[in-house]
């Protein structure tokens, strides 16, 4: 699976003295395994406890929603990783949806024209954030909070709250279609995750993004044009938001201007449970992927288990807590084995 783990906190994996643990233990020691394990466990539990969980229809729905979550979370991850944030992600999503709806419905243009326009709108919105953050040196929290209002206002202003319904049938292929039972949305998410994992591990630009997030000033004094990196990441954030928005339009077959209103929490939850450091400089595509599935699973499972509607949110919170504490437990187990292993080694 895709993975980026620039900051492997593994001390001397080669010379480690506790033998007999093998590759599995090595995998277990990885920073991003906690959420993967939690997701796998939850999947297993739901599959065993409820009979309608492991049906084609349900798996299709889960994977498609998870695919969408991946893009929403990537939009946040790419700015979290440089130590910033994008509160306006949902606003960008809404703007893109309206751009797509307006061009396809009101103007009657073909998706081949609308989609590039919509993507460009998303990237422009991101660029708007980026340029102001870079030039004004004001915290991204404040800038994107302001732009969230700007974008949301534009969305309601342009659409007047009306959905655009005349979306060409052909455009719904991406959001509704599937290959061998796997939704295109999900496939696209995996491909994008793989690309981003590759970017972070193997490309100069990816490394520079991580370095910028690790310590902006040090990166700058190491010859990285951090302003350009910050700008680029905000453009990418806009792009991911745009893709998520378009996938939603494609799935709905209509462009709902309220799209994106609930992205803020999803984007932070998935990205951060998925191992993106709030302080920047670290991201794991594998964990992000697992965490997108995790969140979808929880929401799905709660309905499968038919929990009391009044307390649903409480359960959601509890399961998220449980899932993230698995990571703490893993880390504790890991460090204690490491400690004892080392102590033995020094004593010996």
């Amino acid at each position: 699976m895709a993975e980026v783990n620039v900051n492997q906190n593994v001390v001397s994996p080669k010379k480690n003295s506790n033998s007999g643990t093998g590759a599995l233990a090595k995998l277990f020691r990885r920073n991003d395994m906690g959420v993967v394990i939690a997701t796998a466990l939850l999947f297993l539990i739901f599959a065993l406890v409820t009979d309608s969980f492991f049906t084609r229809y349900n798996l299709f729905n889960i994977s498609r929603t998870a695919g969408l979550y991946v893009f929403i979370a990537m939009g946040q991850m790419i700015v979290l990783v440089i130590g910033g944030m994008n509160l306006s992600l949902g606003g960008i999503g809404g703007l893109v949806v309206v751009a797509a709806g307006y061009t396809m419905d009101s103007m009657g243009w073909s998706p081949w024209i609308s989609v590039p326009i919509a993507l460009a709108v998303g990237m422009l919105a991101g660029a708007f954030n980026g340029i102001i953050i870079v030039k004004s040196k004001i915290n991204s929290f404040i800038i994107t909070l302001a732009s969230l209002f700007i974008f949301t206002g534009l969305v309601t202003g342009i659409s007047q709250g009306f959905p655009y319904t005349e979306i060409p049938k052909s455009f719904t292929l991406m959001g509704r279609g599937s290959l061998l039972g796997v939704p295109y949305t999900f496939i696209l998410a995996i491909v994008t995750l793989l690309i981003m994992a590759y970017v972070f591990k193997f490309t100069v630009i990816g490394r520079r993004i991580l370095a910028t997030g690790g310590n902006l000033e040090a990166a700058q004094l190491s010859g990285i044009r951090t302003d350009r990196i910050v700008f680029l990441c905000h453009v990418l954030s806009g792009l991911f938001g745009a893709i998520a928005g378009l996938l939603w339009v494609s799935r709905m077959g209509s462009a709902q201007p309220a799209t994106g209103s609930d992205w803020l929490i999803i984007s932070f939850a998935v990205a951060i449970i998925g191992g993106t450091a709030l302080t920047g400089g670290e991201a794991s595509m594998l964990a992000l992927f697992a965490s997108a599935i995790l969140l979808t699973l929880i929401k799905n499972g709660l309905i499968m288990l038919n929990v009391n509607v009044y307390f649903e949110q409480t359960f959601l919170g509890l399961i998220i807590l449980l899932a993230v504490s698995i990571d703490r437990i893993r880390a504790m187990l890991h460090s204690s084995t490491r400690k004892f292993g080392r102590r033995d080694a020094t004593e010996a």
Partner: peptide, 26 residues
């Protein structure tokens, strides 16, 4: 057989209703 709630946007509604339908599809 099931009651669901807590949906303020179409996005949430689609996700939850989809889930509820899968849960009781038979």
């Amino acid at each position: 057989i099931q009651e669901i709630s807590g949906m303020t946007s179409v996005e949430e509604a689609v996700e939850k209703i989809g889930n509820a339908l899968s849960a009781n599809i038979n």
